[in-house]
Design a protein around this nucleic acid. Sequence first.
DNA 1: CTGAAAGCGCTTACAG
DNA 2: CTGAAAGCGCTTACAG
Lengths: 336, 336
Amino acid sequence: MNIKTIAKMAGVSVATVSKIMNNYSDVGEDTKQRVLRIMEETGYRPSSSAKTLATKKSNLIGVVFAGELNSDLSHPFFVSVLDSFKKQIGLLGYDLLFFSNEKFFEEKEDYLARCRHFQVEGCIIIAGDQVEPSVHRLAQSSIPCIGIDIKLAGDNSSFLMSDNDKISSRVVEHFYMTGYRNIGFLGIDRVTEITTTREIAFKQSLQSFGLTVDLDKFIYSEDFEEENGYQAMKKMIQRGNLPQAMFAVTDVLAFGALRAMREHGLSVPRDMALIGCDDLMACRYTNPPLTSIKQDKEKMGKLAAMMLFDIINKQLEPTSVIVEAELVVRQSCGAT
Amino acid sequence: MNIKTIAKMAGVSVATVSKIMNNYSDVGEDTKQRVLRIMEETGYRPSSSAKTLATKKSNLIGVVFAGELNSDLSHPFFVSVLDSFKKQIGLLGYDLLFFSNEKFFEEKEDYLARCRHFQVEGCIIIAGDQVEPSVHRLAQSSIPCIGIDIKLAGDNSSFLMSDNDKISSRVVEHFYMTGYRNIGFLGIDRVTEITTTREIAFKQSLQSFGLTVDLDKFIYSEDFEEENGYQAMKKMIQRGNLPQAMFAVTDVLAFGALRAMREHGLSVPRDMALIGCDDLMACRYTNPPLTSIKQDKEKMGKLAAMMLFDIINKQLEPTSVIVEAELVVRQSCGAT
DNA sequence: CTGAAAGCGCTTACAG
DNA sequence: CTGAAAGCGCTTACAG
């Protein structure tokens, strides 16, 4: 079933059928109705490959999960952003392509090649850690890109980030206002852009409140797992001398810390207040419930879709947008 | 940059270039190397639309989230299955297409039309509740489909389900072996295939252990939210007369029930044991940690990919496969 | 081992 | 308002 068949059935030319499908105005109303009816009856659908080939427009947005770590569909933050992105970009008339093919030209990470192959009109790049160089090559190409939590340079790319500086300063501010002066940090023993940014901002923030940056109170877990947070906290407990309050760069690490505290008969927030970051669902259910930072994932996804659309349509110059995050106060921070 | 340019640069015909790209053996080794080098240097990538148009093979698998409820990317179960599916189908050489376009021919849910449009080679259909008829139309078409937790009929479709019967009987068995005889159920006040199956199996299971099905101990929440579970449990507590143990069809409902218990000064499992279903991450952090049923999402995703691949290649007749689920014992069930 | 040519199903100036 | 025809970038018998 193709355009030719429809044309023949309706007794018109393929050009006319094409015009009707694309809502051209210069078509006779009766011919239009006749053709439309036939399309309806036959259940005809134009082929996207033929259309893409002819127009060079695929109506497809590529989704790339960049980074070797933490860059799966399994990451709740990404999924939420993506879900919101999907809704908005869908409203704007696009479908989404996920690059999963591992047989692609033997080289699995050449995103630019994949994008050209499918002629995607734009990409959303969601970043985990240790982002591959090929991602930046893509962002610097002519293909419009929008990055989530990754700084993209390129004439056709923009990016969105959570306000990581603000995240840290909000936490410090909150602790400060609650009366804590001796504040520690549970970070990660590996250089990742976001956690590093948060740590730097955290230190600056302490200083701006006139607090001392006591590196004895900074501990680092080996990885992103709960167990790592547990181990790191355990070590600190054994060393003695806990801070009054602590900021964990990640909820999952905070969960581990919470467990270590409990196991040692220590109470949060009494013995040490704790704030995490990500606002995972589980924060509501820990004992005590974990105060955390919530990023506006829905807003990020929606904004990403609208910005990408505008870049594609040359309505937007490359920019970066910072999205504010919110402190969700529960019991672990000792403020209630 | 197209095949013609490459051909010209290499001084061969486009047919030869095409053969090289597709690994035909009847090409001279030196020509092959020469062409390959030029492709490398120019960064040439064949256009998928042209290829799809010529071959009728798109190398694309469509992803459909069926159902009006609980059918988002935000559902952790789906995401895990999909993540695993993506890896395996990627190994088999496919990319994934998410249907998000809301402008598609005005009728957003005609999945079959979308599939034809993109010439996807197969579909994975992940079901929430209240599945649209168009999903079944798709499954009965000539397009190979694999369903997750949805019964698909059609000459080219298969499906995978968790063993919902077993889930219920496992819970009952576990309660029974712990010594409980008076067992209740926290269900949902709405007909959804999966929860209904679980409820029926639950009742049968009680009977097979010689226990009475006491409908007074069956309560129903209005919806899938934590708050609904909380409300349902609260009512039951106020009515008095709790069962010794209870099975909640969903972890989230169980979380709500847990909260209601705590608020009324009741203890789990002492005053009532509780088991949930889904094994959400948060189960590990509730107070007490929630015993739950864990579906083998990874296995389901991988199996789905392999089966779909085989259906596409006519190596597999339509079948259904039941995947076993596992009871993850924590403290809420009173067995430790 | 190599190439000319038809065909896949659309769109788009262009002519009428 | 309508249609003939070229073109998009590939693949695939087929001939040599």
